[in-house]
């Protein structure tokens, strides 16, 4: 690790100001950033910690919307997002206890790792990503592997999840990292079903719209049995071929729907 400056502001405004320095980076739970710094793959001049900002931490529910502060650790979401059980369950399956007590929802969404769990929940829920500057719809936010709509220095202050009638997340773990080799989040709302897939595509998290249409018409596992998932854009690596991931998308979607019953 190279030397760097460290600041821990207590307000979003102070954090935004601190991030104006060249090569400054926000630090939330640090579950990705710190390991890359230890390997000397990342060299920020300054780290601006977001975990000292009280406004960014916490879970609340009101009017059918669950709000999670940007710097809320996974363990807190697992424990406190009872109004959205599928989301709480997803948070409780991320990494191990050490990761869940450090890693945050804002960090995960800002990093947009193609195998992370939270992006599938945000996209399937049609969540709103709230930043210090604006509100971004999940459909506009995720722009491909490790790429988001965030501007330089923009901070995720919170995420607003419309609470669905039913939802389930099926995570199939990559055997080594236990990230999602493929994960499927199905959420059923009054106006339709949304299906978001993580871990599978070279373009990062995506919606499986054919399944959404079929499930919106008939919310049962059988509704998707005739669909096929194209493997063209799927990830192929040591842990699974593109065809295997395409299979997982369909199998896990069916299991998620079954689990909603």
């Amino acid at each position: 690790m190279y030397n760097f400056e460290f600041v821990k502001p207590s307000s979003v405004d102070e954090a935004v100001a601190a991030l104006r320095d060249e090569d400054a980076q926000p630090l939330s739970g640090g579950q990705t950033l710190i390991p890359t710094m230890k390997q000397r793959l990342n060299q920020p001049s300054k780290l601006v910690s977001l975990t000292g900002i009280a406004d960014l931490v916490g879970v609340s529910s009101s009017g059918g919307v669950l709000s999670v502060g940007g710097a809320t650790p996974h363990a807190t979401v697992a424990a406190e997002a009872g109004d959205y059980p599928a989301l709480a369950a997803l948070a409780g399956q991320i990494g191990d206890p050490a990761v869940r007590n450090r890693g945050t929802i804002g960090g995960s969404l800002a990093n947009n790792d193609p195998a992370a769990c939270y992006p599938s929940a945000a996209l399937a829920s049609g969540a709103t990503i709230v930043t210090n500057a604006r509100e971004i719809a999940a459909d506009d936010y995720f722009q491909g592997m490790f790429t988001t709509a965030l501007d330089e220095g923009e901070i995720i202050t919170g995420v607003k999840f419309p609470i669905p009638q039913a939802a389930n997340y099926q995570k199939f773990e990559q055997p080594a990292s236990r990230f999602a080799l493929t994960g499927v989040f199905v959420a059923k709302y009054a106006d339709g079903v949304r299906v978001a897939v993580t871990g599978a595509s070279n373009d990062g998290v995506f919606r499986w719209t054919e399944a959404e249409e079929a499930l919106s018409a008939n919310f049962s596992p059988n509704a998707i049995s005739g669909l096929t998932v194209a493997s063209d854009d799927m990830i192929s690596d040591l842990h699974g071929s593109a065809a295997y991931r395409a299979n997982l998308v369909k199998v896990l979607t069916g299991r998620a729907v079954a689990a909603c019953a």
Partner: peptide
């Protein structure tokens, strides 16, 4: 015998 290899063998 990773899940991927077992699935591929079956399919």
């Amino acid at each position: 015998l990773s899940p991927s290899r077992v699935w591929s063998a079956m399919n």
